[in-house]
Simulated scan of single mutants.
Amino acid sequence: MAANLQAQTNAQVSADSIAYQLQRKKINSMLDMRKVRFGQYSQSLNEHTGIFGFQTKGDIRRSNDILMDIVKTDDNIYKELKILLEYRAFQQRQIQSHSKEAEAINQNYVNLISKLRQQNAALKTSVQKVHTMQYIYILIIVFMFASILFLISRKSKVKV
Rank of each mutant, 00 (worst) to 15 (best):
N120R: 01
Q6A: 12
S29F: 08
K79G: 04
L45W: 02
I113P: 14
I148K: 08
L85E: 08
I60G: 06
L5A: 07
K124R: 09
Y137Q: 11
D59M: 02
S153C: 12
L81R: 05
R37E: 01
I105K: 15
T73E: 11
I18D: 04
E80K: 05
S114K: 03
Q8W: 01
I138Y: 14
E80H: 11
Q12R: 06
N28L: 06
Y109F: 09
I70M: 13
S44Y: 04
Y78K: 07
L45E: 08
I138T: 10
M1K: 15
I77A: 02
Q23T: 13
Q21R: 08
F54V: 04
R24H: 14
I152Q: 06
V127N: 07
D74N: 11
S156D: 15
R154K: 02
K35P: 01
T73H: 10
G53H: 03
Q8A: 06
T125H: 00
T132I: 00
T9E: 09
D75Y: 11
E103T: 14
A7I: 13
M144F: 07
G53N: 05
N108K: 08
L67N: 10
I60K: 12
A19C: 04
N4C: 12
R88V: 05
F54D: 14
L5I: 05
S29D: 14
I27M: 05
M30D: 12
A3F: 05
A89N: 09
K155L: 04
Q134P: 04
F38W: 03
L84V: 07
S44L: 04
F52A: 03
T49H: 08
I152M: 03
Y135S: 06
Y137S: 13
K35S: 10
K25P: 07
I140Q: 10
I141W: 14
G53R: 10
I113C: 13
G53K: 05
Q6D: 15
L151G: 11
G58F: 02
I27L: 07
K159Q: 12
Y78I: 01
R61W: 02
D32E: 14
Q21A: 13
S114N: 08
N10E: 04
Q96N: 04
A102S: 15
A2L: 10
M144Y: 12
R62D: 03
Q94K: 07
S14E: 13
F143P: 07
N76I: 00
Q94V: 00
M133P: 00
